[in-house]
Amino acid sequence: MAKAAVTALLHPRLALRKRIGGAAYVAFVLAIFLGLAGLASLLVRVLWEGVPWLSWHFVTEYPSRFPEQAGMLSAIFGTLWIMGLTFLFTVPVGVGAAVYLEEYAPKNWLTRIIEVNISNLAGVPSIVYGLLGLAVFVQILSLGRTVLAGALTMSLLVMPIVIIASREAIRAVPSTYREASYGLGATKFQTVRDVVLPHATPGIMTGTILAMSRAIGEAAPMIAISALVFLTFVPTDPLDKFTVMPIQIFNWVSQPQAGFRGIAAAGIIILLGVLLTMNAVAIYIRNRTQKRSEE
């Protein structure tokens, strides 16, 4: 009794303040539920609309004017081509840039410019990369609206992601490893090749997978490059025309007939399925290496 009186004297309005605190807590939890509910309704909507349209035929057929006959074969192959080439272009250059910035770069103005520049590039809207690709690869280098032009554009787009992730992975390699390697008489390059990079590989792989999963969903820059969306052939070399899964989905969503909405949802299911698998692999690699380094 006396204690309550003392509390009331020392902390006026404490009960009220506690009640406000409780109300705010409810509001915070509601915000989380808002986010989760948004995600859940998006996924449920896509599954509800799309599952009835999923079939084997959907992934083995070309697009068609009739939703019942349409498939996304050309888009799937276009995406595979773009992903493969983007991977080939991005990984060596991205990892090379990360190695330079972490292991070689002197602390001077040029290095600072490169660093600031990379973080700015990460924030450039993807459609602007599309315009860059249209002007430089399609027109000036006259590659035309081809797989190669698309993959080069996509590589520039995801390069900052690979560089930033690889730098973090390289930075996380303990400096004692490097010192031990130098102590045995290894050169800088030998140290980087045989000590630093092998230990940074899981981190680099995680970053690369995340970069590729960004690339697989990008429609805007690919529209600027490929333009056309109705293809009834599969690209067989880098100088063929192409379309990708997100462009095909965009095309179907913008059709007025209800049937196309359904196959758009079916396409989204496939796209999200690939994405979630890639992310799961990335998380698995991250967790496994975390466990190993804790041991």
Partner: peptide
């Protein structure tokens, strides 16, 4: 929550429109 940031924007377009 970070899954929200990884979903392609064309999917959000579908969600908003339909």
């Amino acid at each position: 929550l970070e899954v929200l940031a990884g979903i392609p924007t064309v999917v959000y377009g579908y969600f908003a429109l339909t």
